[in-house]
Structure formats: C-alpha cells, structure tokens
Design a binder for these strands. Structure first.
Length: 500
RNA sequence: GGCCCGGUAGCUCAGUUGGUCAGAGCAGCGGACUCAUAAUCCGUCAGACGCAGGUUCGAGUCCUGCCCGGGCUACCA
C-alpha cells in the first residue's frame, strides 16, 4: 500500500536547529519502519521560501530574495544526510513546478467560487510597511519594533471562504477522530472549528515575493496557502515524467509542530475541499523540545542543545535514539547534553551495545563464531511473542516513543537471560554443551530480532550488528523470534557505541 | 473569562472498558557474577496515586467542586 508522509517545510528565514532535526528524525523513523513493512513509501520534506520575512531579510542583506532562499535552503537540505534522514524528495516552494501547480489548484478554488475580493483591515506600521497581529501590538496600539503609533488601514485582498467549510470540517472531525493526533490537539482544533470560522485573506498586494495569483497578477498568494500546497504539488514533479499524485495522494501523515496546528488542521483541509481534493488521513502534532531546565530553549538562558555537538560527540544514531527515547512523541520535553550522555552510556553502550559484544564474544569463544543450529529457548521466544505486532500497531499511531520502549524492554530481557542461564558456567561442563548451544542460539536470535526493529531508529548501528550476524533481512516479518538458530558464522564487531 | 490537557515513589513517567493498581526506569543503599564496552544481574528504600466531597460491595481508574502547572481562544511565518 502507498504510504505518504511529510514533515512541515522549514522556513528559510533562519538556520536549521534541533527542532528541525527532531521533526525530520521522527518522521524518518516512521518512514523507515513503513518501508520495512514493504509499504510503498514516499517521504517528503523541504523548504518554505516565500513571504515577507524572507523578502525583508533579503533586503536587509542587500541581496535578492532568491539568493537568500538559495543559500538557506541549501543549509536545510544539507542537514538531512547528517541525520540519516531518508526523504524521497526535497521540495522548495520556489520550484517553478510548484508555482505552476499552486496556481492550478487555487485557480480551481477560485473557479469553484470560494474566493472573493475583500478588504483586510488591521493595524499597520508605516515603518515596517506591514500589518501587525493583535497579540504582538504594544499598549496604546504601538508597533512592537518601532514603538510608534500604528494606523488603522485597509488593503484589498483576495479572501478564501473558510466560513463556507464550517459544516464540512465539523463533519470531518466527527468522522475521523484520528484526523488530528494526539487527542489534546484534536480537541483544540475541533474547538477552533466549532467556535466559528471567519474567512481569511488569500493574497497580498503589497509584496511580490510569492506565487502570482493567476486571475489577478498584481497579487501573490499569502505564503501559507502556497506553503501548504507543497504536500500536493511535490507529487507532480518529484519524479520527472512520472506524476505520483494518484499513487500517493492523499497523505497518510503530516507531521508538524504545535505552532502550526491551525493551518494544517483547519485551513488546509478546507482548501483541499474547495479544490475538490481528498483530505489527509492524519495530522500528527509533536511537541517542542525544551531546555534541560524545562524552560524554552534560548541562547540567553544558555540551555540550548546543539544537535551538531551531539552528532560530533556521540554520532547520528545516538542523536536519533536520544530524541525518540527521551521525549514522549506528541508532548513537550526537556533535553540536554547530560541526558544525552546518560542515555548513551546506560542504554546504547551498556545495554544494547554490550549485549551485542558479550553475545558475539561468547559465540566466538565457545563455538568458533558459529550460531548453533539448534532449537531456540521457548522461554526467551515467549518474551518476544507479539513484539513486532505491537511495534507495528504503535507506529501506525505514530507512537514512536512507545514502540521504542517496548523494544527496549526486550533488550533488558536479553541481558537478564544471559544471567539466568550463565553460559560461562555451562561452558565448563561438557555434559551441558546442548544447553549452551541453545542459550547462544537464543541470544543471537534475540539481538537479531531486536536489531531488525531498531533499524528504523538507529539504522547504521542496527545494520552493523545484523551484518555481523550475517542476517540481511530487515523486513518487519523478520523480527519474529525464530525457532532455530541460524547456523551462520558471525564476524567480529567493534563496540557499537564506544564509551569515551 | 471560556474550553482542553496534566498533577502517581527524590527525578522521568506506565497505569486500557472501576475489583493483586500501587508499578517501571533513573538516582541511592546492599549483594552476586565474570561472557562482555568495570558492562550485567539480584535485593532494598520510599509514594495518604493534587485537595475535599459523592456514586459503588469496591475508585489513581467514574461524578461534582476547588488548588497547581501547561495549552488553545484565528490571519508572524
């Protein structure tokens, strides 16, 4: 089955930071897992490059918006391979093909009668040449930047008849209780819809850094509408000569941060309805990463976790593991270098890495590196029963943290199993060779099954261990605990997660 | 103000439809073992499950009120 998943696209008016990495990694875990299930996966990410902030920043730097966008888009794009993110395409909203398709879709919205020319009225700062939002205005209606008095002004805009979709959106929320996840966000979005919808402006006339409105070329589309459409337009040109739209649309998952909830859970489905396009199955809203002190990360507080520092110190898999493990996906959570160290040493090095080391070492020492081809221990098999299915169910619900916890319970179980059976004692008694065979075969099988499931989270390390075990099948089906030892001759493996 | 989440051992949190539900991990303390990256394993400590009522044979688990923390309450992207 087709499985289409996206991250939000990053706004290029800034540098990539941990938040971008977090979202990309979480989405990548789901995408990789789905590929392990032989789903026909398409994973999209990219950059959002239009709008006033980019135009303004470019002006400040004395370059054209396109030059600025090119520079910054390259930085975002370069981040992905560093994180081992396996996106299938990287869309830029400045792509010509994107422009063309945005115009196509919104033309249809226009033709269907869901737009009209109206007046946007708001508080305007003549120095900023920009309207200010209600909650950013200082007391006395003053500009937050210039602190000068704002004037009440109007601008002629094209409007989108969001209000016309109130009923259909309510219906969507009634029929798809998992349209927005987790539940708190669903409630939030639904409450917003229920409270009554106003029309929203669809175009801007004061600015030209955007996609031209085809029926009124003096306007460009409001950046959000252009940006949201990336999820749809990308499928049209990601594979030159092959339109993937029918194959993948609508998306299974849009993974986003809570700050852009409204755009994705209200505006976006309404716009798709207006264009007569199917709406996505799920919008998953993740939380924010906080400083180790639980406060919002900020340079002045000095509580920022630098992803590149983690990558340098511990590596890509460690960063991926840490973020998926330590912060419940869907909630906010504190992160810090100390916590990274604890998870790395206690779990990746001591529990998983060392489990691999001791297992391989015993195979080498007691059986010349060969996994005995004997029946595995039903007691250990029992501990793995249902694991892969449970992981599958949790990932279906985007519960990447919960799934990892289940996997990790079995990592611990394997270490306990080693102690229970004490293979080094069995090795001293030739009469108990059969028992030792069983224990070693079972342990090899255990770390193999675990590594298959861990491929989505720590792809490089899991793969290294599987290679050492001569086990190349990474499909989720292969995560079932086998009834017999593989008979493979394993190879030596340097510590997967060396301690410093 | 209204609405939505949450408030469970020192810390981070699990606890499905009410009846071994009082748990896990980390931290602390004690012990065992040696295959392993001095890794691992076992035991142990503590908690009136935010407060007060209520429903029930029985409630972290349902109802009401209150307290505390967080979020949303529209056009910054």
């Amino acid at each position: 089955m087709a499985f289409y998943i996206t991250t939000a696209i990053s706004y290029v008016n800034g540098a990539p930071h941990l938040g971008h990495a977090y979202e990309a990694i979480a989405t990548d875990v789901i995408a990789r897992h789905m590929r392990q299930r032989n789903e026909d996966v398409f994973f999209l990410t990219g950059t959002d490059e239009h709008g006033e902030p980019v135009a303004d920043a470019a002006k400040d730097q004395g370059v054209t918006p396109q030059v600025l966008a090119d520079e910054n888009a390259a930085r975002f794009r370069a981040l992905l391979p560093q994180l081992d993110v396996s996106n299938d395409f990287f869309i830029r909203t400045t792509d010509a093909e994107h422009h063309r398709r945005v115009q196509e879709v919104l033309r249809r919205v226009h033709d269907n009668g869901f737009t009209y020319k109206g007046l946007y009225e708001g508080w305007y700062c003549p120095k900023c040449a920009d309207f200010k939002v209600e909650n950013e205005i200082l007391d006395g209606n003053r500009c937050p930047i210039h602190e000068i008095a704002l004037t009440r002004e109007q601008e002629e805009n094209w409007f989108f008849r969001l209000s016309a979709f109130q009923g259909r959106l309510e219906q969507l929320y009634a029929e798809q209780p998992a349209f927005v996840m987790p539940l708190q966000r669903f409630n939030e979005a639904r409450a917003f819809v229920t409270s009554g919808l106003q029309d929203v402006s669809l175009s801007r006339a004061r600015m030209n850094w955007g996609v031209t409105v085809p029926w009124d070329p003096s306007h460009v589309f409001y950046v959000w509408f252009d940006a949201l459409l990336n999820y749809y337009t990308a499928l049209g040109y990601a594979r030159p000569g092959d339109d993937l739209t029918d194959r993948y649309w609508p998306a299974n998952f849009h993974v986003i941060g809570k700050d852009i909830l409204k755009f994705h859970t209200v505006f976006w489905p309404a716009m798709l309805m207006a264009a007569e396009l199917p709406t996505p199955a799920h919008v998953f809203v993740h939380g924010f990463l906080l400083g180790a002190d639980g406060r919002k990360m900020s340079k002045s507080l000095g509580n920022v976790l630098d992803p590149f520092e983690v990558l340098d110190e511990f590596g890509t898999d460690a960063l991926r593991f840490y973020l998926m493990r330590d912060v419940q996906f869907g909630s906010d959570g504190p992160v810090g270098m100390e916590q990274v160290t604890v998870r790395y040493e206690a779990e990746l090095a001591n529990e998983y890495g060392n489990l691999a080391s001791r297992t391989l070492a015993m195979l080498q020492r007691y059986r010349d590196g060969r996994v005995p081809e004997v029946d595995t221990d039903p007691a250990l098999a029992e501990s793995f029963a249902g694991l892969a299915d449970d992981v599958v169910d949790l990932i279906d619900a985007a519960e990447v943290t919960g799934a990892l916890e289940l996997i990790w319970q079995r990592v611990r179980r394997c270490n306990r199993y080693v102690e229970e059976r004490a293979p080094w004692q069995l090795a001293r008694d030739p009469e108990r060779a059969a028992e030792l065979d069983q224990v070693l075969a079972s342990l090899a099988e255990g770390i193999r099954a675990l590594s298959v499931l861990l491929c989505a989270y720590i792809p490089v390390s899991a793969r290294r261990l599987l290679d050492a075990l001569r086990a190349d099948d990474t499909r989720v089906e292969a995560a079932a605990f086998a009834a017999r030892g593989s008979g493979a001759t394993v190879s030596a493996l340097a510590p997967l997660f060396p301690k410093r």
